[in-house]
């Protein structure tokens, strides 16, 4: 399968701060690619670099097999994007907004097609209303319409479900799947909500503090033999100290105020449970988690823990 986006050793420094550090990944064609990370992990900076809004400090970005810096116009003609909130011209109508961004995308587009586009996102009836009268969800849908107005091959959506109600989130999810399945588009969708991406993404990357933690197919990344165990105790502090003193210390994930987190293989779970009882740690509950969310948490918090220890 060919790659639509190929990123190599990408770095971005804002003065002293390293926002993105040696990041490499590739986005396969015809897939939904999840771009995951907590707020401030460097997702937005990376996406803005893909869209030429931010200049990389070093590294290369290839899109459609072309160098982004050299073939900027050619590439952007085939890319549609929403970056964070899709802010539009509030004093103009939906149709006017759509027309403006259509022209800016370098295409000629008929009024009928514009209306079709609005109909696709369910805004045909409000086509002539000023955007300032729109709800957040309507703005989001209009944003998507503007990203799609020139029929791009690659669609980059940065936090597309931010601030939406459950129905809005479901609508966007369906739209993304429709674009992939029915129209054969490639999509990069960033989110800090893993549960969302889990439902739509084929492949994904998880970044934290500007660094790649892991990249791969969603179903391969998630190792069913690993699990995160959340242990609630009478006194987490004491429990943690006792664990650290024992050989179980290596399994501890970072501090969490209300629980002790352990990352274990499935077969280790009963053994560890038994040992903890023997150590006389007052266990209140012992909960084994098994979702992508936990996986993500385990990766990012482990990373944090390593850094905390290093410091």
């Amino acid at each position: 399968m060919s790659s639509i986006i190929q990123v190599k050793d990408l770095n971005k420094d804002f003065g002293e701060i390293k926002a993105v550090s040696n990041l490499s990944f590739s986005v396969p064609a015809g897939q939904v690619y999840g771009f995951l990370g907590q707020n401030g992990a460097g997702k937005s900076t990376t996406i803005r670099m893909l869209l030429t809004l931010i200049k990389p400090s070093s590294g290369t970005i290839q899109i459609f097999g072309m160098e982004l810096q050299k073939h900027r116009k050619e590439i952007l003609r085939k890319v549609g994007a929403i970056i964070e909130r899709p802010d539009l011209y509030k004093y103009l109508t939906a149709l006017e907004n759509l027309r403006i961004f259509g022209i800016m995308s370098g295409i000629k587009i008929s009024e009928k097609k514009l209306m079709d586009q609005l109909a696709m996102v369910g805004l045909a009836e409000r086509a002539h209303s000023k955007v300032k009268t729109y709800s957040q969800g309507m703005k989001q849908r209009l944003g998507i319409a503007t990203a799609l107005v020139h029929d791009p091959e690659l669609i980059i959506l940065d936090e597309p479900t931010n601030g939406l109600d459950p129905q809005g989130i479901a609508d966007i999810r369906n739209l993304i799947l429709h674009l992939k399945k029915d129209l054969g588009k490639t999509l990069v969708v960033s989110s800090h909500l893993l549960s969302e991406v889990e439902l739509i993404a084929d492949s994904m990357i998880i970044i934290d503090k500007g660094k790649k933690l892991v990249e791969g197919k969603v179903n391969e990344l998630f190792d069913p033999s690993e699990t995160v165990v959340e242990v609630k105790t009478i006194n987490d502090e004491i429990a943690r100290e006792k664990l650290k003193a024992s050989q179980l210390g290596e399994f501890i994930l970072s501090k969490r105020n209300d629980a002790v987190l352990l990352k274990l293989h499935r077969e280790q779970v009963p053994v560890v449970m038994k040992e903890m009882v023997q150590m006389d740690i007052g266990i209140l509950s012992f909960h084994s988690k098994h979702s992508l969310e936990d996986y993500f948490l385990s990766l990012t918090t482990a990373n944090q823990y390593v850094e905390t220890v290093a410091n």
Binding site: K73, R77, S105, T146
Partner: peptide, 14 residues
């Protein structure tokens, strides 16, 4: 301020 700058600059215009 409106947030339209970032959208405009992702368009194929130098």
């Amino acid at each position: 301020n409106m947030g339209t700058l970032r959208l405009s600059l992702t368009k194929p215009i130098s």
